[in-house]
């Protein structure tokens, strides 16, 4: 039995990572819920946002957290245009074509990154990168605490938008019944693009929260997107609360598996949970029957 003093910090660390996973998964689950597609470009958009944060810091000296008000709207616009200008236009509304288009988009983004910025792993250093907070039972790095709080705040904001605004109502209507939504006068193309934009904005927020403690490289998106898929399935496709809970569970699982099984086998726990959930409860913890 591992001592409590080791176990507790591992769990707390897992929770902070899990919150960021949840944030990335939130964008994915929103796009899946509305458009009914698995967005393959999600990971590369995350990578792009991380580079944006990196260069804002390296070039202009902007702190990653202060970059939030710039990067998030910027990526919202990028996502909106991407859906409206490329994905909708190229896919003719057919699911397998949407899949191919998002795959194509991710290939383009990733390889342009590889061309312009090389495959180097880059990190940034902030004054607080190595600071820790004493939570009484364990020391946790400051960036991780901020990421945890930030991810929760963004989730809360998103929940507010979805449940309290006209935009949120339109998105939910579209997710439930495409034809009906069109009949009552919802601009379907616009709302699709808005959903994609919000999903991309989530990823941008995650990038700002991640960078003080994580590296960026052209392939970094893969690490997160597979886990984000897992979180989405675990929580139930299209469910926000599910994505949050799923993210936290996955974060803790990864942390504990790493502790018990070692680094290289650590991630296997995530995928075993993933497979088990898909097999025994494919609607996820909080999902509705499809």
């Amino acid at each position: 039995m591992v001592e409590f003093q080791i176990l507790l910090p591992a769990i707390l660390n897992g929770l902070t990572t899990g919150a960021v996973y949840a944030l990335i998964a939130l964008g994915l689950t929103l796009i899946y819920g509305v458009l009914h597609i698995i967005n393959f470009a999600h990971g590369s958009l995350l990578m792009l946002a991380m580079y944006a944060v990196f260069f804002l810091h390296a070039g202009l000296g902007i702190d990653p957290y202060l970059a939030l008000p710039v990067v998030v709207p910027g990526f919202f616009a990028l996502g909106y245009l991407l859906q409206r200008g490329v994905i909708a236009r190229a896919s003719h509304g057919r699911d397998e074509n949407i899949l191919l288009v998002t795959l194509g988009v991710s290939i383009v983004i990733e390889n342009l990154a590889r061309y312009f910025w090389r495959s180097d792993t880059r990190t940034i250093e902030t004054p607080y990168s190595f600071e820790t907070v004493d939570l009484g039972v364990a020391f946790i790095a400051v960036p991780k605490v901020v990421a945890f709080a930030g991810a929760l705040l963004v989730t809360l904001a998103l929940w507010w938008v979805m449940s309290r605004t006209d935009l949120g109502r339109a998105i939910r209507a579209l997710a439930k019944e495409r034809q009906g939504a069109r009949l009552v006068g919802i601009d379907v193309d616009h709302i699709f693009a808005m959903s994609f934009g919000i999903g991309t904005a989530c990823v941008a927020a995650a990038a700002c929260l991640l960078l003080p403690s994580f590296y960026v490289s052209p392939g970094v998106g893969h690490t997160f997107v597979l886990i984000a898929f897992t979180v989405v399935v675990l929580g139930g496709m299209g469910s926000f609360a599910g994505a949050l809970i799923g993210g936290l569970i996955i974060g803790v699982t990864e942390s504990l598996c790493g502790l018990y099984l070692g680094e290289s086998l650590g991630q296997i726990g995530i995928f075993l949970i993933f497979i088990a959930i898909l097999l025994f409860r494919p609607t996820g913890l909080l999902g509705h029957r499809a």
């Binding site: 490329v86 191919l100 288009v101 194509g104 383009v108 990733e110 390889n111 061309y115």
Partner: peptide, 12 residues
């Protein structure tokens, strides 16, 4: 990288 990026564009 550029060749694969073009591949992606052509795919779309």
């Amino acid at each position: 990288g550029l060749d694969l990026a073009l591949y992606g564009v052509l795919l779309v």
